[in-house]
Computed example of a mutant assay.
Amino acid sequence: MAFKEFLEYLQLEKNYSKHTVTAYKNDLGSFLGFCEEEFDEKSIDNVNYSQIRSWIVMLVNNNISNRSVNRKIASLKAYYKFLLKTKQIKINPLSKHKALKTPKKIEAPFSQEEMKKVLEEMEFGDDYEGQRDKLIIEMFYATGMRRSELVNLKVGDVDFSNKTIKVLGKRNKERFVPLLPYIESIAKEYMESRKAISTPNSKDYLFLRKGGDKIYETLVYRIINNYFSEVSTKLKKSPHILRHTFATHLLNQGADLNSVKELLGHSSLSSTQVYTHNSMAELKKQYGIAHPRNQKS
């Protein structure tokens, strides 16, 4: 089997994270285990679609969600595409497979009132951690960047001269987001405080822990969850919801969908269109209020 080559390809050529590579490895391993038990197959390189279909049926019968099944099949698809590319197989057994239907997952963004309560009414403190936490939340809301992108920001990525923030996105794709004046002011104050705790281990990362080490993703999640738990009853209070909030609020205010796509770093417009659900709800609300024929006499 070409497992090892495939995983090295994902990590070295596709620049996938270790977490993603591990997920692919687990999915392929799970399918191999099924094939060994059901069909006495020691390799999955030359299985047919009927065998894959049997695995799908087993997963569904075990109450694995369609979304999770599709993710596992996506791992298999990537593997067989790699085998085709490297000429280790001639036919992709999943070439005609259609993904299982899944309900559209719409996560509720924070309201403008909730954002105002956190950013304008909440006390963050004047110490380093208070300044850092405030800038993290402001940065998420002002740029819509992903959690991993924020964690890996460098001091030099914030360009005060050109008023931009350089964001390194998926597949190492760079994009530039405008540096808004109020973010510039907060960032400059934070950077002064950062100088006092910076160490050689900091490696110029923008956001640091109090001891000078680079901040990590779990801590960022905890920061967002802690502050927004004070003002919101939503079940999910995460950096991703802030990204969702950024996009929704821009669209509600009339921003162009293509512009939001570029700011979010999406490769296709379909990824951005999921955010139009909430903006359409707001549009219907305002339409109902403003249309003359809907006014009470």
Score class of each variant (00 low, 15 high):
Y216L: 09
V155L: 14
S193R: 03
K170H: 12
W55K: 01
F140Y: 05
K284W: 08
V260I: 15
M115S: 01
Y141S: 10
G254L: 07
R147D: 09
N15D: 12
Y24S: 07
T218L: 15
A99F: 04
N258L: 15
I106A: 06
K105F: 10
E217W: 10
K104A: 08
Y24K: 02
M1V: 12
Q51T: 01
R222F: 06
S229T: 13
I224S: 01
K90L: 14
D126T: 13
Q273R: 09
L269K: 05
S17A: 12
K188E: 10
G156H: 04
E262K: 15
F34K: 02
K87I: 04
V118T: 08
R243N: 01
V60P: 04
S161R: 08
I91F: 13
G212C: 05
H19F: 08
N225Y: 09
I136W: 03
K237N: 13
H266G: 02
K154Y: 15
Q286I: 12
N48Y: 13
H266I: 04
R243P: 04
M145P: 00
L76S: 02
V155W: 07
Y24R: 05
S271C: 11
H97R: 02
L235N: 13
K90I: 08
E138Y: 03
K87C: 06
T20S: 12
S193G: 02
N66F: 01
E36S: 09
D40V: 09
K87E: 10
P103R: 09
E138I: 08
S297C: 05
S198P: 12
S185T: 12
Q131E: 14
S270R: 06
C35G: 05
L12R: 14
L32W: 03
Y128W: 00
K188G: 06
Y128T: 03
L168D: 01
L242D: 00
E129H: 04
S111R: 06
F140L: 06
R171E: 07
I73V: 15
E192Q: 11
N61S: 09
L219E: 12
N61V: 06
S68M: 08
S75H: 03
T233D: 14
N201G: 13
D27H: 14
L257K: 07
T248F: 10
L235H: 10
T245A: 11
V158G: 02
T143N: 00
L12S: 15
Y221V: 04
E184K: 13
L150P: 00
I73R: 04
K166H: 06
K134R: 14
I136V: 12
K163M: 10
E113F: 11
F246N: 01
S30F: 02
